[in-house]
Simulated assay, not measured.
Amino acid sequence: MIVTVLGVDPRSRSKTKLQAPAPLPHVSRRALARVRDRIEPPKACHCCGGPVKLTNNSEIYNGHSFGDWPFVYRCTQCQAYVGLHPDTDLPLGIMADRATVAARKEAKADFQRLTAARFGYDRSAAYAWLAQALGIAKSICHFAMFAEAQARRAGEVCRLELGSRRV
Rank of each mutant, 00 (worst) to 15 (best):
I2C: 03
I2L: 14
V3S: 06
T4S: 14
V5T: 15
V5S: 13
L6M: 14
V8P: 02
P10M: 11
R11H: 08
R13L: 11
R13N: 07
K15C: 02
A22V: 03
A22S: 07
P23I: 11
L24K: 02
H26F: 12
H26G: 02
H26E: 15
S28N: 12
R30H: 02
R36V: 07
R38M: 10
P42G: 01
A44F: 09
C45V: 09
G50T: 08
P51Q: 12
P51S: 14
P51A: 15
V52S: 04
K53C: 02
K53G: 03
L54C: 07
N57P: 05
S58F: 04
S58E: 13
S58Q: 10
I60S: 00
Y61W: 12
N62H: 14
S65Q: 12
F66I: 06
G67W: 08
D68H: 10
F71R: 01
V72D: 06
Y73W: 08
Y73G: 01
R74M: 15
C75L: 10
T76L: 13
T76P: 00
Y81K: 05
V82W: 05
G83W: 10
L84T: 09
L84I: 07
P86S: 15
D87K: 10
D87N: 15
T88Q: 07
D89A: 08
D89M: 04
L90A: 10
I94R: 15
I94S: 01
M95Y: 04
M95T: 03
D97C: 10
D97H: 07
A99H: 14
T100E: 06
T100P: 02
V101N: 01
A103T: 04
E106S: 14
A107R: 04
K108D: 09
D110T: 04
Q112G: 00
R113H: 03
R113Y: 00
R113K: 12
L114P: 04
L114V: 03
T115L: 01
A116K: 11
R118D: 01
F119R: 05
F119N: 02
G120Y: 05
Y121H: 13
R123K: 15
S124W: 07
S124Y: 14
S124V: 12
A125E: 11
W129V: 12
A131K: 14
Q132M: 06
A133K: 14
A133T: 07
I136A: 02
A137R: 15
K138A: 12
S139P: 00
C141K: 09
C141P: 06
A144F: 05
M145Q: 08
A147Q: 10
E148N: 06
Q150W: 00
Q150P: 00
R153D: 06
R159S: 06
L160H: 12
L160K: 13
L162G: 14
R166T: 13
V167F: 09
V167N: 07
V167Y: 05
